[in-house]
Amino acid sequence: MWRARTLDDDQTMTADTAVRRSSAPPPKGKRPLFRRRSAIPGFGLTMGVTLTVLSLIVLIPLSAVVLKAAHQSPADFWAVATSQRSMAAYRLTFGAAFVAAVINGVFGVLTAWALVRYDFPGKTVVNALVDLPFALPTAVAGIALATLYAPTGWVGQFLTPLGIKAAYNPVGVTIALIFIGLPFVVRTIEPVLRDAAEDVEEAAASLGANRVDTILRIVLPALAPAWLTGFAMAFARGVGEYGSVIFIAGNMPYKSEIAPLLIIIQLEQFEYARAATIAVVMLAVSFTMLLVINAIQAWARRFD
């Protein structure tokens, strides 16, 4: 109701009345739904375009996959969603994404710390490079990593004598996800670290805390929400990642087959309902991660 009226009013109001209205105090007694009415035109148009495009491109198509999966009986859904092959794929996908996010959590903090606190030669280049995984097409990363970590590759030849099989193995999946996830951790921690007040650290030091104590008890706790957000984002991206993984994974059923690949395999066999089933499981995980990330950020804002 309210929205519709604002829209019509905005279109017919002259600028003068609009401003006078917007500066008028809200009616006393009850809290207004809108903090104040805007003098700026265009709400109806821009909101209309936003909701229409969002529905057509994102929301309705996403509902298609849920409807397709719901088309089968719950027993069929459950059988596909929890088949041995699917479970093996989830284990690999979530496990590799988790390990990669942990590794990125460690090196991401160090990278952000070095970029914010230190000056060193080549810092601008390092800073730009951190975003490489955002800019480099995943397929390119995939073939490059597969070539590097193959038994005869630049890195693989040193791992083989140690008994480590990197490419065409779950280890390879993890390596690809480390590449993909790194910037998420660095770029979420960096602004928080930059805004963190150094005087708190100075205060701790002047009160007799040594540097290690200060970092462990002052700096790291303040970074925790950003770190968790970055970790969750890297994990979420890793779970869905396809392009950089399939070249290095080996794609053996039950062993090195990731969940997104399982969807493609079902699709190629025209098993649309099965593909949709696995997709729904992955969507459920994505949405859970999204809620977790939002909850962490809401929790972090309480400390501002």
């Binding site: 198509p61 298609a64 996959v65 869905g240 396809y242 969940a259 699709l267 949709a276 997709a279 992955m282």
Partner: peptide, 17 residues
């Protein structure tokens, strides 16, 4: 939302439609 959806699922939804 599209950032949280696997690219493969993004392709799948249009195949289903």
């Amino acid at each position: 939302l599209p950032f949280s959806v696997s690219p493969v699922v993004a392709g799948l939804i249009y195949v289903l439609i």
